[in-house]
C-alpha cells in the first residue's frame, strides 16, 4: 500500500452567480496516490457532509475523459498539470505529500459560475446551435460510400471532431476566447465534402454567435492548445479565420444575431 499523502486545498466557494465568492481551506491527511483528483474531492465531500457542511459542488459525469463535463483550474492550469488529461483522469500521484493545491472554476464572462466550481457553459451550445451542423434529414442521404473521402481529410476532420466541449481552451486563454472550440467545429465539418454546402454560412453564423456570447478574441498565445485534453491544434483556428475571411469577402449576407440568455 502506498503511503498516505497530506494535501492542503484552497477551494473556491461561491453559493450562486451573485455571491462574490471566496477561497476556503481544507486539509486531507490520507490521500492515496491512486485516487483520481475527483475521488479526492469525493473523499473531502464525504468528510464535509459528515461534519454537516455543504459539500463542494463540481461538475463531472463519465469520469473517463470523454463527456467533457468536468473541468477545474488546478494550480493555475485548466485540468491540472498533466498534459492531454481531463480533471477526472488526473491522479493524485501527480502531486506530492504536503502539496498545497489551489482549485478554481473556469473563469470567463461567457461561463458564469453556477455554484462553487460549477459553471454554465450553455454559450457553447448556442454557438453550435447557430450553425455547427450539416442540415440533413433522416431518410434523405444516399449510400454512405457514394462519396469517397481521402483518408487524410477524414483523419484531419477526426482530429478536429475530437473536441469534448469542456471549455478548458476558454479557461486557459488570456482573453477567454473560444476560438479553439469554434475553430475545431468549423474545421471538422469544413474538411468533409458533406459540410461544403453550408461551409461559409456556417462559419459566419458560428463566429457571430461566439462574439455575441462575450468570449474574447484570439491573440495567438496558444494556451488553449496546451490546455486542451484532446490536444486539438491551433491550425484549426487559422482555418476558421481563413474560412471566415473568405466568407465575408465572397458574399454578404444577413447573419441574425441572438441575444445570449
Amino acid at each position: 500500500m502506498s503511503k498516505p499523502m497530506r494535501i492542503t486545498l484552497n477551494v473556491w466557494r461561491q453559493t450562486g452567480p451573485k455571491d462574490p465568492g471566496q477561497f476556503e481551506r481544507h486539509e486531507l491527511t490520507d490521500v492515496d496516490e491512486h485516487m483520481s483528483f475527483l475521488e479526492m474531492l469525493d473523499v473531502l465531500n464525504e468528510k464535509l457532509l459528515g461534519e454537516g457542511k455543504d459539500p463542494i459542488a463540481f461538475d463531472h459525469d463519465c469520469r473517463e475523459g470523454i463527456c467533457g463535463m468536468c473541468g477545474i483550474v488546478i494550480n493555475g492550469r485548466p485540468h491540472g498539470p498533466r498534459e492531454a488529461t481531463t480533471t477526472c483522469q488526473l491522479h493524485m500521484r501527480t502531486f506530492s505529500d504536503g502539496d498545497e493545491i489551489t482549485i478554481e472554476p473556469w473563469r470567463a464572462n461567457a461561463f458564469p459560475v453556477v455554484k462553487d466550481l460549477v459553471v454554465d457553459r450553455t454559450s457553447f451550445d448556442r454557438v453550435v446551435q447557430a450553425g455547427g451542423y450539416v442540415s440533413v434529414r433522416a431518410g434523405s442521404p444516399g449510400d454512405a460510400n457514394e462519396i469517397p473521402i481521402p483518408k487524410k481529410d477524414a483523419d484531419a476532420a477526426m482530429d478536429a471532431a475530437q473536441c469534448i466541449g469542456c471549455g478548458a481552451c476558454v479557461a486557459a486563454c488570456p482573453n477567454a476566447s473560444a476560438a479553439l472550440f469554434v475553430g475545431a467545429k468549423v474545421s471538422h465539418l469544413g474538411l468533409l465534402p458533406q459540410g461544403q454546402a453550408e461551409r461559409f454560412d456556417r462559419v459566419r453564423k458560428m463566429v457571430a454567435q461566439m462574439d455575441l456570447e462575450g468570449f474574447g478574441h484570439c491573440t495567438n498565445h496558444f494556451e488553449c492548445m496546451a490546455a486542451c485534453p484532446k490536444e486539438i491544434s491551433v491550425d484549426f483556428i487559422a482555418r476558421m479565420n481563413r474560412d471566415m475571411l473568405s466568407a465575408m469577402v465572397k458574399e454578404k449576407d444577413t447573419v441574425p444575431g441572438r441575444k445570449p440568455r
Binding site: 494550480n75 482573453n175 495567438n220
Partner: peptide, 24 residues
C-alpha cells in the same frame, strides 16, 4: 477592452505554458 470584459473575475493562480514573453 473586450478581452478584459471577457474575464471579469481573474484567477488567483494562473500558469501559462505555451505563450511567449512577446505575446504576453
Amino acid at each position: 477592452s473586450r478581452s478584459v470584459a471577457a474575464r471579469p473575475v481573474g484567477y488567483r493562480q494562473k500558469k501559462n505554458t505555451a505563450t511567449s514573453y512577446a505575446a504576453r
